[in-house]
Amino acid sequence: MSRPHTFTPPPCAHARQLRTARGDFAVLDASPSTVSRGTALLLPGYTGSKEDFIALLEPLSAAGYRTVAVDGRGQYETDGTDRQETYAQGELARDVLAQAAALGAPDDGTVHLVGHSLGGQIARAAVLLDAAPFRSLTLMSSGPAEVAEAQQLKVKVLSDALTALTMAEVWEAMRALDPPEDAATDGEALRRRWLRHRPAQLIATGRQLATEPDRVAELAAVPLPVHVLSGERDDTWPVPLLDEMAQRLGARRTRIAGAEHSPNTDRPEETAAALVGFWNSL
């Protein structure tokens, strides 16, 4: 779980509903503070939310990029159903295409798409459906196929718990397993976020993480610039596996020193600089 240090957006951003052809999505929308260089759409990971990108909003907007972080269907402040089939990867990918269309003229190729972890695999699926709306794709701590075996086990345990317990009961169980340093940084805002996730969304997307096929060859065939960004350590997808994926894609590769699975919260300034450097190079 990404742990943003704050749930309060900076002055450059405001919380709103993004109205699309596939429904409304809760977003944090940060306006550029200089001449606009483009738009970035940021997709959070498993159990995450748009707030995971709060620390990126100010530096990205200062560099001239309108930055929109979104809660996906059934995540935190975006509504969802209790039916797992509504969170099939193809459905979530079509949501992303609708979000991109709502941010600009459809198929204008001006949106830089960024997906963290699960969000990266959803972003990849969206690009494979239709790459036309996008200027680039950044896969942040998001691997070529299923998560590591230890993470598959964690996802299964969580999914089993979600079928038998309430969200509040599962939260208390997770907190009891947290190391002391993590427990000390958690707050009521994280609990509120957890309680507003739809269990069906977590079960369905958890299954996707545990069974995702390798689609790197498909993505390599798409004429879109790709950036593989991660921390220097990652227990969800081993960093050497991400290195190999970047080579297979012919992608730009960035490792953020001092960061682990969530460079967006571990080292936000360095992560923002890497994103801006990639986008500006295009």
Rank of each mutant, 00 (worst) to 15 (best):
G23N: 07
E172N: 14
G80Q: 07
D235R: 05
V222K: 05
D71V: 04
T166D: 08
R252E: 01
I256Q: 04
G143E: 05
A123M: 07
T166N: 09
V228T: 03
L97G: 07
A150T: 07
V155H: 14
T205H: 09
Y46F: 14
T163M: 12
R22Y: 11
A132F: 02
D214M: 04
R248D: 02
D95V: 04
G250S: 10
P106H: 10
R37L: 09
T20A: 07
A88N: 08
A88D: 14
A125S: 11
R191L: 14
E51R: 09
D130V: 00
D130Q: 10
R233N: 15
L275F: 06
E269Y: 02
Q152N: 09
Q208D: 00
A183I: 04
L162N: 06
I256E: 02
R252C: 00
S49I: 02
F53Y: 15
S2G: 00
A30G: 10
L242T: 07
A145V: 01
P179H: 08
R255A: 06
A272M: 03
G143R: 04
P268L: 03
H116Y: 12
A257I: 08
M167A: 14
A200G: 14
L224Y: 06
L165K: 15
V157D: 09
L162F: 11
R124T: 02
R19H: 12
L153G: 00
T110G: 07
Q75R: 10
G80C: 07
A63P: 01
L224V: 00
L202W: 09
E169P: 12
M1N: 05
F7N: 02
Q201T: 09
V96P: 03
D235A: 12
P213M: 02
E172K: 13
N280W: 07
R83D: 08
D82E: 15
T47K: 10
K50Q: 12
A257R: 14
Q99C: 10
A55Y: 06
A21Y: 06
D186I: 12
V96Y: 06
P106Y: 13
T271Y: 05
R248E: 00
E269C: 03
S159D: 15
N264M: 03
A40E: 01
V127K: 03
P238G: 03
A26Y: 09
L242P: 06
A161T: 02
L103C: 05
R94H: 13
Q151H: 11
V96M: 08
H5G: 05
L103I: 12
